[in-house]
Design a binder for these strands. Sequence first.
DNA 1: AAATCTATATACAGACCTGTATATATAAGA
DNA 2: TCTTATATATACAGGTCTGTATATAGATTT
Lengths: 187, 187
Amino acid sequence: MSSLKSKILVVATDLFQTRGINSTGVDTIVAVAGTTKMTLYKYFTSKENLILEVLEKGHQDFQSWLSEQLNSNAKKPSDKLQKLFEFIEEWVTSPNFRGMGFIKASAEFPNEESAVHQLSSEQSRQFRQYISSLASEANIQDADGLALQLSLIFEGAVQAEQMKRGSGAMKYAKKASKILIDSALTN
Amino acid sequence: MSSLKSKILVVATDLFQTRGINSTGVDTIVAVAGTTKMTLYKYFTSKENLILEVLEKGHQDFQSWLSEQLNSNAKKPSDKLQKLFEFIEEWVTSPNFRGMGFIKASAEFPNEESAVHQLSSEQSRQFRQYISSLASEANIQDADGLALQLSLIFEGAVQAEQMKRGSGAMKYAKKASKILIDSALTN
DNA sequence: AAATCTATATACAGACCTGTATATATAAGA
DNA sequence: TCTTATATATACAGGTCTGTATATAGATTT
């Protein structure tokens, strides 16, 4: 991938999270990235296409990092579930953290026919599915139910952490996840 | 309050939730409300002012309904806490439900200097504070912690329920809240 | 050195948005 | 009937946004 294209993606990811997607114009993006609109439209067919690529990249980076960490640091399936929020906290509190794109995108694009909305809700579904598979492997009865509960807490905590860094939301989310997982394991 | 002003508020509340705030122009609002821009700008000094009044009204309606229900249907403080999500579910699944304004508004207005952002995060704080006071009365040690956990679940479930009606999010949110409250009561 | 590829600079068309100005209609009260 | 208050109809100024057109500069290849 061209270095300029990569730079545009990084800058757009940042601006979308800090100023909102709809409120960030392409002029602002190219100015911050130190390039011009002609170059942006060479690598991306439209602003919507740029948004979609930003979402794709963010989601892939997070998912592959997370499953990598869980696979190499936890062996038993129930350990993976227990350590899930430990690693999520590590990700969210890292200086490189730029927010979870799909959470904000689904709020800014509520129209179900929008491609952005469709991708972001698909990513949310995929993440829930991943948690559910961890729960299944740990022999939890209602795996989908626990996955939904954990994803509610996760999305809420990420949003809170984004709005106010160091809000403590992640700490209490971690505690809540422990309680819910324990309760699901003993039932 | 003038009937036209009230009509504009209702229509704007609806459109903001279904299409997004920034994506909804005042022209659309007045067309759906069956009036004109001149009338809208008579009752509201600006679009931002309209957004703020929509948020105020939505929050007041919810908070007064909720505390009314809790005060008349639960006597012991711990009962109020236990029944909190029962009533929230009733509110969210009612046909009149138009979403919780402050959840979406904080996502669409991430700039901390924005008056809309400030109001919506203040409302979020107030709601959390209300839950915390219920927890305190029920003699829960870390009342603020539990309030944060419950509000994370609440905001996540409302957002999920908005995105997909009948998603079952509310049902599992209710279960999660029971588990977390029980855990907090016995510690 | 000539040709080609990539990025820049700049301008602008077309669409949309907020907020206002102007002129008109409608209905109620004096 | 005359006046006053309220709502409508319509047009538009000024701004922002996306996406494109045109011309130019720099660098690499042949």
